[in-house]
Amino acid sequence: MSKQFQFKLVLLGESAVGKSSLVLRFVKDQFDDYRESTIGAAFLTQTITLEDQTTVKFEIWDTAGQERYKSLAPMYYRNANCAVVVYDITQAASLEKAKTWIRELQRQADPSIVIALCGNKLDLSARRQVTEEEASKYADEEGLLWSETSAKTGEGVNAIFNAIAKKLPLTAPPSARGARVAAPGATRQSVDLNRQSTAHGSEACNC
C-alpha cells in the first residue's frame, strides 16, 4: 500500500491577490469573479497523489489579507509545514508585502517550513508589474519554490501544490516529528497514516 501523508499549509499575502481563489481552484476547481473577502481565515482540505502513488493531504488555512488581521496570522502559520505566499503580478506593492511575510515566516515559523512564492493573476499578464526575473531571482536567493499561476484559468495551480508536496520531507520518520506536537488538529505535524492511523486520536502528552 502506498504511503499517505498529511500536512498543514498556510496561505499568506496581501488582500485581493487571489489567495482564496487559488485555494478554491485547487480544492474545487472553481472560480468566481467576485468572492466575499475572507475574514479571519478559512479552512479547506485537498488530497493529491504523487507519481509514486504517495498521497499527500493538505490541511489548508486560507488567511485574511488585510493588514488589520495580521495579529491572527501566527495562530495559522505557527505549526504549518508549508506556506504559499501569494502576490499579484499586476501589483508591484503586493510582492513587497509577500517579502514581508516571507521574512516573518523565516523568523517565526518552524525552521523546516517549505515556502512557495506564488505570482497570481497570470491571466492579466498584459498589466504585469512584476517581472518573472525579479520574482524568481528573489525566490532563488531565499531558497523558495516559485511559480506563477492563474486561479481564473487554473494555469499552474496544481503544479505549485505538487511541487510543495515533493519538497516536503516525505521520508522523515513521522513518529519523531509527531512527538513534538501536543495533540492533533491545529498543531499536528506531518503524520504517516500507515504507521499512525489515528491521526485525530493522538494521546500525546500535553504538558
Binding site: F43, A183, P184, G185, A186
Partner: peptide, 9 residues
Amino acid sequence: SQNVEFMQF
C-alpha cells in the same frame, strides 16, 4: 480535545 481554538471560528 480536538484542538479547536475559539478564535478560529
